[in-house]
Computed example of a mutant assay.
Amino acid sequence: MSVAEERADNIRMLRDSAAAVVPRGSDLARIRALRFGMPGFDRDVWREIGEMGWIGLRLPEAAGGAGLGMAEFCALAEELGRGLVPEPLVTGAMAARMLGDATPPALVDGSRIILPAWQERADTVAAGTDTRLDAGRVTGRKVFVPMAAGADAFLVTTREGLALVAADAPGVTLDCAKTQDGGHWGTVTFEAAPAEPVPGTTEAAIEEATLATAAYLLGVMEQGFAMTLEYLRTRKQFGRPIGSFQALQHRAADLKLQIALSRASIESAAATLDAGPLSPRRRAAVSRAKARAADASLLVTRQAIQLHGGIGYTDEYDVGLYLRKAMVLANAFGSAQTHRTRFAALMPEDDDV
């Protein structure tokens, strides 16, 4: 079996394994039951995710991981996006990548939830370093930690390096703000909180989590679009399926094109990251993919609501959940505008988002 064939087989198996948490047929009953609750996801499902090796997918085998590439991780994230899976795999895997060889087995197997606390301001792709680590204690403030109420510990970026802080440690205060999709962002304040300094790096982990978020958004827009096509085939007006009307066919074709362009950009960026160490061109590829996915996911899911007509605006109808997810994740790991700006700074003028 060639390398390409082996990789394609890995991707196929990962997509198939995602059915364990993304039931075929897109039954969103579990997702609806978890909305707006705390922690907003199921720890039993998280442990199952760990047992399947997804948290350590990008870790080398010597560190307890699967040693797979970004193409595989993006395929998995896409499948999770189709099912609006709320478990924070992207950021959990990000923490593992930040720690590298120092990743504790409890994080990889899902028995302990460690989430990265790396942002100190909105709309950024750079880890904040205003937080201080002094004499084994962390002082500072981190924002936009997704699903933070479910964390057992936070992996905190500081001026002096990475630090592991227990979520229930003295000096740790968590303030959660609910989001449109039924989840939440956490603002974590550390006031001389006891911490364990740990080795690790952030740059590659942030880039990979950014691209995985784009892939998740690809799954969101694909499933929202699939639901819309099914509705256009079955909803009748004047004795005909509304999908037979040329104006609606043109709108659907435009949306399909946006999805195809997003997929091409994400797959290209994944191949670029897998080809070697970080470079300006590889960062630019990530920004191109994230900008496309952010804009396209909002366009596709908003149009999906409109093409469904009045029923699409009701909360009881599932298509609206896809728009809500796109609204939350479009700006995660940097907005489309932030990534267009970064792309322009990193790439030659003859390349375009």
Rank of each mutant, 00 (worst) to 15 (best):
R251C: 08
G171F: 00
A169F: 00
A212D: 06
E196T: 12
T189R: 15
F154W: 14
F154H: 10
G200C: 05
A253M: 14
D175C: 05
T157A: 10
D168F: 01
L229T: 14
A214S: 10
A163M: 09
A151K: 13
D168R: 09
D175L: 02
H184L: 08
D254L: 10
A226N: 12
A253N: 12
E160L: 09
Y216Q: 12
L155Y: 03
A204S: 11
L155V: 04
F154C: 07
L155G: 11
L232R: 14
Q180G: 06
V172L: 06
A166I: 03
T210H: 08
W185C: 04
I242L: 01
R240W: 04
A193N: 10
Q223T: 10
F190S: 02
G200E: 15
D175Q: 13
T157G: 09
T179Y: 06
E207P: 00
T201M: 08
R159G: 14
V188C: 11
T213P: 00
A205P: 11
R159L: 07
G239I: 02
G219E: 08
Q180E: 11
R240E: 10
H250L: 14
P170N: 00
V165N: 03
K178L: 11
L211R: 09
E191V: 12
K178F: 14
E203Y: 02
A151V: 15
E207K: 06
T157F: 04
T157D: 04
Q237M: 07
L162R: 08
L174K: 04
K236W: 00
G161T: 07
A151D: 13
Y216F: 15
Q237E: 12
R251Q: 15
V198P: 12
T210K: 08
L164W: 01
V172K: 04
L217E: 03
E230L: 14
T189Q: 14
M227Q: 11
